[in-house]
Design a protein around this nucleic acid. Structure first.
Lengths: 197, 197, 197, 197
DNA sequence: CATGAATGAGCCTTCATTCAT
DNA sequence: CATGAATGAAGGCTCATTCAT
């Protein structure tokens, strides 16, 4: 899957596919639909992607949780957010905003369900997940004095809660902001306890 | 109905389907494969299920998280587990054991990813999810004196963490038991803080 | 296709089939539907008919035009109807009444369309059609002094018109009676001309 | 579109289907058979027709009686055929010739029997039948001074007779030409009588 | 006589992929 | 780079018929 060719055609195909995959799932989306939405001919698809699966791999990476939190990679974040609580709130907002757009959540869950069956997808996910959790834990240790394991658990619970919230929103009935204001303190309180031991 | 082993055919079809759905996903599993594994003829499938989707709905219900926690429905549970921490550990064990068998986790995630596209699946999920969270919260309020909303958040985070753990196990590197021993205190500590306010 | 067994079951199957064949056609009607409507088990069908085609043959005979005109076989009809015009009107009324009931017209046209493909049906039709036309012509010669050929043409045109009327009713817009009052004189007038030559 | 013989594929499919439909009926003819006879792959069929029913509708229109009589639409026909009898003979010849080719009669009767069950077919038939009868009647009034209703009845009887003749040929035993020479005078004579009143 | 679970050949339709232009 | 007609394997589903009870 080459990442070259700055032409519009490739982009049009990817964005058309994103939307369709989200709405109908990978298997139920046809190449016909993708090229129709992209406004190109059928054969053109195979000039840019070796197969439909090839395209799926490209898209998979773009909807990973690690892509949802740009602030996680910012090296000067402790300056912008001196308070861990504020930082987590910020990460949470970024996360929810990211997955509220472009049907990314639907695509991510779909990808999650097929990863075991698709060589490449599983690797991308494992690597991306490890990186996310480890980076998150590292950030936490920059704020509070806790062991790496405790930080890892804390961050995993944070991510897990946000991710679950994406498909239990209507079962809970809270607003996004209200939810964040409730979850973040749980994480913070526990890190305080852990650091004081 | 034949005298030898009544109801056997339907069961054979369901269990064959469960295994195949988990391995290959709903869309990639064919009715041909299901009947071959079940050892019956193709037409027989349609004696028991109106369609492939019909079977999917039946299976969907069986892999819902609420099915993973039988202790959640036990009315005398506060007697068996006078301590909330022990109770949550127990629920966690049940959850992890349930999803370690029969490829249930894979099926659940697959279902999660297609629910928006399948009338019926979405309803089953929403109802089941609401019931799970509400029942869990109710249980918690039987142990500690906290508001329902705090209990709800606590239980949602608990479930979310367990669920996320199912697909981040290898990224974390903990044993199941170790993970539970780490997560449950986080929930407990916070409920204590909330109840003391 | 035995015509024995006075039991109700056979009759129930035939009448259920008649109705369904008329509504959905032979090919689109399933044995399942027939037995369901008749209120018997699937296997029972094959106690009375060797196959679905076997049943079709039985039904085919019952919807032939010759069955629609009982007065055609009455040996004393010239006494009841001394006037040919009145007789033809009577035959026309019988014909239209017969085909207005029980979806017989639909079944007849269906049969007509498949006769070339079904051994047996074609024979039944040819024989029945010949008998109808010949008998009709013979009757006419009992009323007016015309050659058999002229009588045959006259009766064929009469039957043809009635049959076409069954599926052009809405295109014409006449009432049944009005139509008969228009068609019969055409036949009569011509027989008069032919007989006077 | 390929440069060699454009539109050929569609035509091949239609003519293959016509032959098969006539021989085996719509329901008993499979898409497999059609594409095999046309010499194309199965998928190709669906490039030209949305479904088998779609093709049926297209063919249905082509076998309507109105398609059998091109002279019915000729505006200068009264010049070519100053005599009504000659004109009707001509129409009759066209009719019989049309239905002797390409199994059109068989297809038409089949269509007639299924029209009530197929949305679209029924509309096509009703409209086509109305147009045929009305146009025929209009023509007649250009030759003889009769009321429209009498002309309509006359033309309906004419068409009906021809149509019935298609499936009663062997029961009558006349040659086509002989039949026409017998039927047309019946129509003519009556129009004369009607016009003289 | 009656039942109905089981069968399996066969049908219509879809769709990823190819290739000549 | 781009096209789109053609392909054919494969899938979901139907239904006439059988047979053990």
């Amino acid at each position: 899957m080459s990442t070259k060719s700055p032409g519009k055609t490739r982009e049009k195909l990817v964005s058309a596919a994103m939307e369709l995959f989200a709405r109908n799932g990978f298997d139920k989306t046809t190449v016909d639909e993708i090229v129709a939405k992209a406004g190109v001919a059928k054969g053109t698809f195979y000039l840019y992607f070796r197969s439909k699966d090839d395209l799926i791999k490209e898209i998979a990476f773009e909807v990973m949780p690690i892509m949802a939190m740009p602030s996680l990679g910012d090296p000067y974040i402790t300056v912008s957010y001196p308070n861990l609580g504020d930082y987590l709130i910020q990460l949470g907002r970024e996360f929810l905003e990211f997955y509220s757009e472009n049907y990314r959540a639907e695509i991510f869950f779909h990808m999650l369900s097929i990863r075991k069956r698709m060589k490449g997808i599983d690797e991308i996910y494992s690597q991306s997940c490890s990186e996310l959790l480890r980076e998150g834990a590292r950030r936490i240790t920059a704020y509070v004095k806790v062991g790496f394991e405790d930080a890892l658990i804390a961050f995993q619970m944070f991510i897990a809660s946000l991710m679950h919230y994406l498909h239990s929103r209507e079962c809970l009935g809270f607003s996004d902001e209200h939810y964040l204001q409730k979850v973040v303190p749980v994480i913070i309180n526990n890190l305080k306890i852990a650091s004081s031991l």
